[in-house]
């Protein structure tokens, strides 16, 4: 069974078809780059997989089950969606504690994920004072809170400094090596080419290319040709 399955996902917003009959799978132990021009429907697709947006047609599953049917979903799937989605008056530690409490997880995980993304020193500062990169790291920490086997990341490198990007690359590579599945949307092709096993390219909501990446593939050429 695939870690992530999208089958015939479609989403209409009024007369506009944002996602059109999109199907793909992501296997455990691999990293899938999810690419496409701005407005291609990447974010909508990720949100449908996470049960936040209801598909007009089709369905998505994590380990064979719809996200909304999962028991303690954040222990199965971690997600990074927007860098800004925090209450500005809460500290990073409180934000994580709130979610850990809601999910019935121990608070030990809070300290662990703060260390993991190197935010321990800033953990008791209000998130409203964080830089974009720090928020992004907090979003990653939140995604990892439940120690999930699947990661769904929307532009995770956004705002990260070079050291952060280097760390993220190493982290994702190790995560997949240990059996995790990663679906990551990004525009930074040179970056993702270094770690991705598979690429799913969409344009105007529909799949235009799905391919396995080998060391000889030039991802930029592949992308530009597919989305032309």
């Amino acid at each position: 069974m695939s870690a992530i399955t999208a089958s015939h996902l479609s989403k209409d917003y009024g007369d506009v078809r944002a996602v059109d009959d999109l199907s793909f799978t992501v296997e455990s132990g691999t990293i899938t780059a999810f690419l496409g021009p701005n407005g291609a429907g990447k974010t909508t697709t990720l949100r449908m997989i996470l049960g936040l947006v209801t598909p007009t047609e089709g369905a998505a599953a994590i380990d064979g089950r719809a996200y909304t049917e999962l028991e303690k979903p954040i222990t199965k799937v971690g997600a990074v969606l927007e860098a800004t989605a925090f209450h500005p008056a809460l500290t990073a530690r409180t934000h994580l504690r709130v979610l850990a409490t809601a999910a019935g997880l121990g608070h030990a995980r809070v300290g662990h994920v703060l260390d993991l993304v190197d935010l321990a020193d800033a953990a008791d500062r209000k998130v409203g004072h964080y830089s974009l990169g720090m928020r992004q790291r907090l979003a990653l920490a939140t995604a990892l809170l439940g120690d999930p086997g699947v990661l769904i990341l929307d532009e995770p490198a956004n705002g990260l400094d070079p050291a952060g990007i280097h760390w993220l690359r190493g982290f994702l590579r190790a995560y997949a090596h240990e059996g995790g599945a990663v679906l990551v949307s990004t525009h930074v092709l040179t970056e993702i080419q270094q770690i991705a096993d598979q690429v799913v390219i969409i344009a105007r909501g529909a799949l235009v290319r799905q391919a396995t990446l080998t060391s000889g593939t030039n991802l930029e050429d592949l992308y530009l040709e597919a989305t032309r």
Binding site: L50, G51, L52, P73, I74, A85, F86, L99, T142
Partner: peptide
């Protein structure tokens, strides 16, 4: 504050 996203990710119900 868009924290509803986290809330519904933790608790889809």
């Amino acid at each position: 504050h868009q924290t509803i996203t986290w809330a519904f990710l933790v608790t889809p119900s």
